[in-house]
Nucleic acid binder design. Structure first.
Lengths: 201, 201
DNA sequence: TAGATTGTTAATCGATTAACAATC
DNA sequence: TAGATTGTTAATCGATTAACAATC
């Protein structure tokens, strides 16, 4: 199966975005992909080859076929169900992000602890009681979780999700969390981003 | 001056966080730093050496002195003024993030276009009219900008900021933006994060 | 056939790691 | 002196790039 390098995986969404903009039936060269994504053409060809996808010499890559392959490789050829935990400002903003549904993700559940929020709708999805988050995820209501809870509850909620069998967590809460081996985790931390940015600017 | 590798810069905030937790006057070894941040001790020593900081053999690094050095290297030894552009759910959430002020950043301005929002307060800062964003940044009201605007306005706002002399932009808007050479840019994209996460989980 | 572009090799670059002498 | 830990070298690993033969 796959064995893509982290560097390659991080570039695939960029390629995909460009390929989706290409007209149907169009062919796209490594040069065009490179130009638009800020990498070298050689790098593009290497990434494409790593997925086992083949282009046509003298012609380029079929845009639709390459897009399909990238989606398959990323695991978004079948739609993935995303649960957003926390319906405060952050969770509400994330639930309303454009382009997410278009890229294969369905927000199938949003959670909050606030009784006043529960039952309200955010982006077409009714807010559910956080108390049910573990049960719902175990039931398969969603299979990826986005954490948008206050910092102090982040680890607790993560633990509940892991116990319920969730294997992918994207943490936007302003707190580092730990997950066991085998659970995929990505952390987005405003504070870290600002510190890194500060060095360069 | 500096010449830190991107990999090193990305690790500095992790070290800093640990060092700030250490008690005053304490000494911390590369082994402890490594353990807590998920890198090897050799890597920590290399990063520290890259900043020109020296520890004491047999003892370790002075926590306060190393923290100071990291802050200086990142450019947050003097407090930096952050403007948040867009006071919707996302901007409001970011303005309220804990730990940001504690780490050297002051949110000195928040902007919105909605007349109903202008004048309201978010996290102690009064929301200003977006029309003034370029003038305010040129006046030095803030020197780093966080974009939390709707996707369609992201590039326009970025252009205004760049024209006004802003050199650091953190983009949370769900749209890729371009900036000229010499302007530091970091992009946080929920869609990309989910796609990458999907591969691993 | 001529032009374009892939697939792949070899060279290069950058980052990580193990190991250990130096030294507190 | 014995134990701990740094600073640094050499080896390794992973990722990028240039270049070009293969081939559409």
């Amino acid at each position: 199966m796959s064995e893509l390098s982290p560097a390659t995986v991080a570039r695939l969404p960029r390629y995909l975005r460009l390929l989706e903009e290409a007209e149907n039936g169009r062919t796209v060269s490594s040069d065009v992909l490179a130009e638009a994504t800020g990498v070298t053409a050689a790098n593009v060809r290497r990434d494409v080859a790593a997925m086992g996808f083949q282009g046509t010499r003298g012609v380029g890559y079929s845009a639709v076929d390459l897009a399909d392959r990238i989606r398959r490789e990323l695991g978004i050829d079948k739609r993935r169900k995303v649960g957003i935990v926390g319906a405060g400002n952050l969770g509400t903003a994330l639930a309303g992000y454009s382009g997410v549904a278009r890229r294969g993700f369905d927000v199938t559940a949003v959670y909050d602890v606030d009784p006043k929020r529960i039952g309200q709708k955010v982006g077409g999805t009714e807010i559910r009681d956080m108390a049910g988050v573990a049960g719902d995820s175990a039931d398969g209501l969603f299979d990826m979780a986005v954490l948008a809870v206050p910092a102090p509850s982040a680890q607790t909620v993560a633990n509940q999700l892991v116990s319920a069998g969730i294997k992918s967590i994207l943490n936007f809460a302003p707190a580092r969390i730990e997950v066991p081996e085998g659970v995929a985790l990505r952390q987005v931390d405003l504070s870290y981003e600002l510190q890194i940015l500060s060095y360069y600017g």
